[in-house]
């Protein structure tokens, strides 16, 4: 950086001012609003809303869907990353594109496609009924939609890391006769650990907050297929503002937790990468 002139200093503080104003107005203020609205009628009302039976049920369902999405996407992400970075095969480019597809699909459409696949209009609907399997307007549908919207979150963190590093270490280990799982556990995983955790955090963040897709597929059955974001919507639309914001504050808390986790992971990952050759 060269010497600052008077005018460049003015530009600097003007730009910082604009940025801070933007962040405060657009990002911080909504956050504060959630908290102040939630406690508008005192702690007792807040506590009642948060410990309400439906809220607790919605919380557990959100957790369940998030956990399942993370688990499935982990299995998928690790498999896809291994397959796409360790081997050359025809159709690899197409596969990569297909994996990224879900993020470009509107959440509403994400919900809709599961409705069409498993709902009353679907050709397999009678089959599902015979087996007594409920997917649409039930928990499995919510889980599927959640997996869909978070689909590439883990694999796309892993693939660039593995690609940048090459396959020499894995090849060296395989040459010595190590089995696939040993290679993964001892050589590959330590390297992608932070990227993987980062992906998990992003996946969890999106999964717990998913609204549109789940809204379409859930059927809004209170106490049954209501996740926290859906519960917030119902309360808000019933003009129960304080309880709505109280429930929202749980999600804000989770979001802040996720942001902190994200920063920590990023920091650790960067530190680790610096040590390496």
């Amino acid at each position: 950086m060269y010497k600052e002139t008077k005018s460049s200093k003015a530009v600097k503080w003007f730009l910082i001012g604009v940025s801070v104003l933007f962040v405060v107005l657009m990002l911080l203020l909504p956050l504060i609003t959630v908290i102040t609205e939630a406690f508008k009628q005192g702690f007792a009302v807040y506590e009642k809303a948060v410990t309400d039976n439906y809220t607790v049920k919605a919380f557990w369902l959100t957790l369940e869907a998030t956990a399942l999405a993370v688990v499935i996407n982990t299995v998928f992400g690790l498999s896809a990353a291994w397959s796409l970075t360790k081997f050359h095969f025809r159709g690899k480019k197409i596969l990569t594109t297909l994996i990224d597809l879900p993020v470009t699909v509107s959440p509403i459409i994400a919900g809709l496609i599961f409705l069409l696949t498993f709902g009353r209009q679907s050709p397999i609907f009678p089959l599902l009924q015979d087996w007594d399997v409920k997917i649409v307007f039930a928990v499995p549908g919510i889980v599927l939609a959640t997996i869909f919207v978070t689909f590439p979150f883990i694999s796309r963190e892993l693939i660039p890391v593995l690609e940048a590093r090459g396959n020499d270490e894995e090849e060296a280990a395989a040459l010595m006769g190590a089995k696939g799982f040993t290679i993964f556990r001892k050589i590959t995983f330590p390297h992608i650990k932070w990227a993987f955790l980062y992906g998990v955090v992003l996946c969890a963040a999106r999964a717990m907050g998913e609204f549109g897709a789940v809204s379409v597929i859930s059927g809004h059955l209170r106490g049954k297929t209501n996740t926290l974001p859906l519960h917030v919507e119902i309360l808000f639309n019933e003009f129960q503002y304080v309880p709505a914001f109280a429930v929202a504050s749980i999600l804000v808390l989770l979001a802040i937790f996720i942001l902190i986790a994200r920063s920590l992971i990023e920091y650790n990952g960067k530190k680790k990468n610096k040590v390496e050759p």
């Binding site: 060296a172 006769g177 050589i187």
Partner: peptide
């Protein structure tokens, strides 16, 4: 892995 060969990679490929 069954060829009884030792291989030294250009990048060494040490397990870091």
């Amino acid at each position: 892995s069954k060829r009884g060969i030792g291989f030294v990679f250009q990048s060494y490929a040490l397990f870091r």
